[in-house]
Simulated scan of single mutants.
Amino acid sequence: MLRVLVADDQDLFRGGFAMILNAQADFTVVGEAADGAEAVRAATELCPDVVLMDIRMPGMDGIEATERICAVTSAKVLVLTMFDLDEYVYEALRAGASGFLLKDIRRDELAAAVRVVAAGESLLAPTVTRRLIEDLVLRPNHGVAPRLAARLSELTGREAETLRLVARGLSNAEIAGEMVVSEYTVKSHVSRILTKLGLRDRVQAVVFAYESGLVVAGGP
Rank of each mutant, 00 (worst) to 15 (best):
L194H: 02
E91G: 09
P146Q: 14
V114H: 05
E159H: 02
S122G: 03
L194G: 03
V128K: 08
R151D: 12
I133S: 00
R168P: 09
R192G: 04
A150V: 05
R200T: 06
I175R: 14
D135A: 11
D201Q: 05
H142A: 14
E183C: 04
A167K: 12
L93S: 11
F100K: 06
V190Y: 02
E161K: 12
T73Q: 09
D104F: 00
A176F: 00
S188V: 11
R192I: 03
L165K: 11
S188F: 07
G177V: 05
S191Y: 02
L124H: 04
R107T: 14
L102S: 03
F208S: 02
M179P: 03
R192W: 01
L170F: 12
D84W: 01
I193H: 12
R139P: 11
V203W: 00
L136E: 00
A209H: 02
D104Y: 01
D84N: 05
R106H: 07
A149F: 08
L197A: 03
T195R: 08
E121Y: 05
E134S: 08
R107M: 14
L85Q: 13
V89C: 02
A75N: 10
T156H: 07
I105K: 10
A150N: 03
R164A: 03
A95C: 15
R107V: 13
S74N: 11
A160F: 04
S98T: 06
K103A: 02
A176S: 07
L102C: 01
F83L: 15
E87F: 00
G99V: 08
D104N: 13
K76M: 12
V128G: 05
K187R: 15
S74Y: 03
R192P: 08
S153W: 00
E91I: 10
V186Y: 08
A92S: 15
G157N: 06
L80Q: 08
P146W: 10
L123N: 13
V137L: 02
T73V: 12
D84T: 01
Y88F: 15
T185N: 12
G143Q: 05
L194M: 02
Q204T: 14
M179V: 09
M179Y: 05
A149K: 15
L102T: 05
A95V: 15
S191Q: 10
